[in-house]
Simulated scan of single mutants.
Amino acid sequence: MKQNKYDDAGFFANYSQMPRSTGGLEAAGEWEVFRTLLPDLAGQRVLDLGCGFGWHCRYAREQGAASVVGIDLSANMLERARAMTDDPKIEYLQLAIEDAAFGAEQFDTVISSLAIHYIEDFGSLCRQVRHCLKPGGAFVFSVEHPIFTALAAQDWHYSPDGEKQHWPVDNYHLEGLRLADFLEHKVAKYHRTTATYLGTLLHSGFGLKQMSELQPTPEMLEKNPAWQEETRRPMFLLLSAVKQEQPDLIS
């Protein structure tokens, strides 16, 4: 299913108040690690899947990217992105990630930030990305960690006095749709195991370069003590892969 939750007025209003929505990349806790996974973007043709407000698109151009295409299904997201962008080398398209059908070897780098867990068929997406990447091109993305997505509630187990006791995990190997509670709304997300993310990439003709489960650093904890709870369980999974010169292994 293709979900356009961000064009729901109430949901978008709540999302617009999040720190990452008002403060940009520096307010996104995973950004410090995410950018270390990116290749040198100078002269690159970049595609951003689920570009949102366009923060990553503008960063790519700041790093010297030759051109950037950002796609998003949400008209609200793209309206905000265009209002914040003054750069003819950045093009925004209203398009579902599942419908992205770009030309062969059209891009040097494909990125995606916290959008792919909304996509049901990760294998199909990997094949699409591989098709539009040049040989050796990079595919760098972040998703909610499978430990985080296994249960739809996506919340701690609390003691009677409200103390966060532990993060419950159940049905981990039962992949598929989860109707998660997010920003006071039910949102459709798709749970996959870590093995599925890695295996699908490899069998789709990618080579894995780097992987991070985002363990908070002392600097992150000093900057934002709330990150302390992220030492108890991973919230994000970040992967960097490259297109290998071999046929697709998934038909």
Rank of each mutant, 00 (worst) to 15 (best):
Y158G: 09
R178M: 07
A66S: 14
G70V: 07
V129A: 05
Y118D: 00
E79R: 13
L179S: 13
M84I: 10
D72R: 00
T149R: 08
A153T: 14
A100F: 14
F139G: 01
E120L: 06
A104T: 15
V129R: 00
K89E: 13
T85Q: 10
D170S: 15
L174T: 13
W167L: 04
F182N: 12
R82L: 12
P88S: 12
Y172C: 04
G70H: 04
F148M: 09
N76T: 07
A150W: 02
H145R: 11
K89I: 06
A152C: 08
R80C: 11
A153K: 13
C57N: 04
S113E: 00
D99Y: 09
R82Y: 08
C132G: 03
A138K: 02
Y92R: 07
R127N: 02
R130G: 00
A60W: 02
L179G: 08
E144L: 07
T85P: 05
A138V: 04
L125I: 10
Q154N: 12
E98N: 03
Q154R: 15
Q63C: 12
L114F: 13
V129I: 15
I116K: 01
L125A: 03
H117K: 09
H166G: 09
Y158F: 15
L73R: 02
L133F: 08
Y92S: 05
V68T: 07
V69L: 14
A65K: 04
R178C: 02
H131A: 10
Y59M: 13
H166N: 13
H157F: 12
G103Q: 12
S159P: 03
E105L: 08
A180E: 06
S124T: 15
H173W: 14
L174I: 11
G70R: 01
S159M: 06
S124G: 15
D155T: 14
N76L: 07
K164R: 15
P146L: 01
T109P: 03
A60Y: 01
N171R: 14
A101R: 12
V110E: 00
H173S: 12
G103V: 06
A66C: 08
A83P: 07
D155F: 05
D86M: 07
K134D: 04
V143D: 00
I71A: 07
V143Q: 01
S124K: 10
A150R: 00
P88L: 11
A180P: 00
L151P: 03
L78S: 04
Y118K: 05
Q94T: 11
T149H: 08
P88K: 10
F107W: 06
E91Y: 06
Q63L: 09
E62T: 15
T149A: 07
V169R: 09
E144D: 11
K134A: 08
Q94I: 13
D170L: 11
S142N: 08
E175S: 09
A101F: 09
R61Q: 09
A115Y: 00
V129H: 05
A65L: 04
S67Q: 14
F139T: 01
A138E: 01
A153D: 15
F102G: 01
P168I: 10
D87N: 15
V140K: 01
E163Y: 11
S159A: 14
R178F: 03
N171E: 14
Q106T: 06
F107G: 01
